[in-house]
Design a protein around this nucleic acid. Sequence first.
DNA 1: AAATCTGTGCAATTTAAACTTTACAAAGTA
DNA 2: TACTTTGTAAAGTTTAAATTGCACAGATTT
Lengths: 196, 196
Amino acid sequence: MASLSNDQLLQEIKSCEDLLTDRIADNMETFGVSSTVGRLLGIIYMNREAMTLDSLADETGMSKTRMSQVMRQMISLNIAEKEYVKGSRKDHYNVERDYAQTFISLFTSNWAEVVKRNTSLERRLREQIRHLETCLTEDSSEDVKVRMERLQQELDEWNTYYNWINNLVAFFESGEIFNHVPIITPNKKEEEQNEE
Amino acid sequence: MASLSNDQLLQEIKSCEDLLTDRIADNMETFGVSSTVGRLLGIIYMNREAMTLDSLADETGMSKTRMSQVMRQMISLNIAEKEYVKGSRKDHYNVERDYAQTFISLFTSNWAEVVKRNTSLERRLREQIRHLETCLTEDSSEDVKVRMERLQQELDEWNTYYNWINNLVAFFESGEIFNHVPIITPNKKEEEQNEE
DNA sequence: AAATCTGTGCAATTTAAACTTTACAAAGTA
DNA sequence: TACTTTGTAAAGTTTAAATTGCACAGATTT
C-alpha cells in the first residue's frame, strides 16, 4: 500500500538484517562464547565480504582492540580467517559462511578441549589410586576398601563417557552426522546437497 | 610401600573425589552454565544419594539461597529432580547418574530454546518482508531489490539451519545417536548396553 | 631518518554474572 | 496461638568477564 522512498526501504532492510545479527549474537552464547563473537560473525556474514578491524569497530561502535581480540578468538575457534587483500595493508577477516559448519567447528573445538583436559586428569588419578592401593594394610577398614572400589568405578564410567564424547566429536568433525541428520534445503534449486 | 592410617587413606580418597568434582564443574561450563551447577552435580553424584539444600551449602561453603537457585536451574535443565524422603520436611535433590544422559539433557535444553527463539523471529521477519514488498514502487532502485532478494535468501538459509538443529536435537533426545555413536564400556561385566 | 599506519600487549575501567544477606511467606509443630 | 523450619524473593555486594585506552613494536611510506 504505502510506497516508501528508497532510503526508507534500505533503512527497513537494514533493520531486518540487524535483527538477524542480534539473534546470531544471542544464539552464539549457547556455545559459551561472548555474544560479541556472534555479533562479529553476523556482521561479517551479512556484509558478504571480508572486513577490517576498523570497519568492524565502526559497525559495532567498539574499540579496535576488542575487535582484534575477538577475531583472534574466532580464528582459534576455526570460524574465521584472515584473507589477503591485494593493495591493502590491513588485515581482512572473513567468516565461515556455512552455518552448520560453524556449528561443528564450535562444537568440536569446545569438546575436544574438554576431552583433552579430562584424559590427563584420568591418567593422574589412576596413578594415584594405584599408589594408594599399595598403602592398604590388612587392618584398613572395610569403608576404605569400599570407597576405593567406588572411586575405581567412577573412573571407569568417567572414561566411558569421555570416550563417547570423543567419538561424538569425530562423528561431527568427519561430517558423518550429515548422513544421519541431513541438511534439507526447502527449495532445492541445487542438487548438490552433499559435497565438501 | 608406606602404609597409611585409615584416616589418611580416606583423606586421600576424598581429595581424588574432589578433583573429579572440580573437573566436572569446569567441564560443565562448556554447556554455558555456571560452574556451580557442575559442582553441585558432582557433589550429589559422588554422594550417591539425594541431598538437601543445607547439606549442599555445607559441602560447598556457599549460601543456602544460592543452592536453591542452582538446584532450580538444574531442574529446569532436566539434570536434577526433587526426591521425596519420608519423614523429612526438607527437599531432597538427586541428579541424573548417567553422564551421557546428562549431556543430552543439557544439549537439548540449550538448543531447543535457541530453535524456539529463532522460529518466532523468522516468522516476524517473513511478515516484515512481505510487507516491504508491497511498498516497492517501479522507481525503487535496483540496489533495494537486490538487498531484498538477499534478505530472503538469508532467511531461507537461516531456516534450513535451524531445521537442521531441530532435527539434531531430536536425534539426541530420541537416543538415536547411540545407534551411531554407541557407548562402549571397557570391562563389560554387564551385557545390557542399551536399555532405558 | 622521520612520519604514519596497523595490530596487539597490558593495565585500568566498566559491565554483567555470581553470590550473599536480609526478610518473609507457607507449612509444620508445640 | 505462638514458635520453628524451610525455601525463595528482592536488593545489595563481590567477583569475574568484557571492554577500553594507552603505548609501543614492526612494517610502510615519504
